[in-house]
Design a binder for these strands. Structure first.
Lengths: 119, 119
DNA sequence: TCGACATTTCGACAATATTCGAAACATGGA
DNA sequence: TCCATGTTTCGAATATTGTCGAAATGTCGA
């Protein structure tokens, strides 16, 4: 990926998170961990019409921040931590790659070694 | 700042960076370091009309990501590294505060101890 | 096969964003 | 004081976004 492509991808990811409902949805998915959440469950928690939420989830998916998997009648969404980490990595480099920098980015806490993404 | 306020501030900061020209402008300011860049210089490098750039800079300033200082006829803009660090910190917690996490955010490299923001 | 459930796609609408030129404002020098 | 320079504010045109209801798609159980 060349530099322009990368920047354009970052803009899309930032834009995907730069909206109240989408940021809230993503945070719920992070909180839900490997289990993920069904689209309907998210819509209910955010008090959004299913079609509105579907649109937002499509944007998040297009930015690569969430993945989807059909499970029976529901479609389960999960946050893509690697994509999020890559975004943070880009911002970190972007923040500290310049002329002067004395910022310490708080390290990722790694609270638990993943309890597994099983249902 | 309560949680909703914080999220709303983060949304604004993300939105400020979620645009080609604004992300490019911010990156130029990061690169320029403590010296900052004049609005006109930024407009020239981004090939944008001065009024358009002024609008973008106002958004970045409103999000707290850049500061401005008049120097003679020019207005010098500088990236606010602390604000950027806070944003990255929020995203990092947001990414890693959930149920499972094994992501290592690359540490800030701290290339130089700041060569001073003097003119 | 049929009906109920979960979600997406489509179509439309209001709200917001991006862009520019023209005009206004601020600063410094002749 | 007057003019040139650098930037912002204003006003308007176009594009994008966020929202919803209605209809279409996919899945399961009877």
């Amino acid at each position: 990926m060349d530099s322009d492509e990368q920047a354009s991808h970052v803009v899309r990811a930032l834009g995907a998170l730069a909206q109240d409902h989408r940021l809230a949805a993503f945070r719920l998915l992070i909180e839900a961990g490997g289990n993920g959440l069904a689209a309907g469950e998210l819509a209910a928690r955010l008090a959004l019409a299913p079609s509105s939420l579907s649109h937002h989830l499509a944007l998040l998916a297009q930015a690569g921040l969430v993945s989807q998997e059909r499970r029976s009648r529901s479609i389960i969404y999960r946050a893509d931590l690697a994509a999020m980490s890559a975004l943070i990595g880009y911002l970190t480099e972007n923040c500290c790659g310049g002329a002067d920098c004395g910022i310490a980015v708080p390290a990722c806490t790694i609270p638990a070694p993943c309890e597994g993404a099983a249902a």
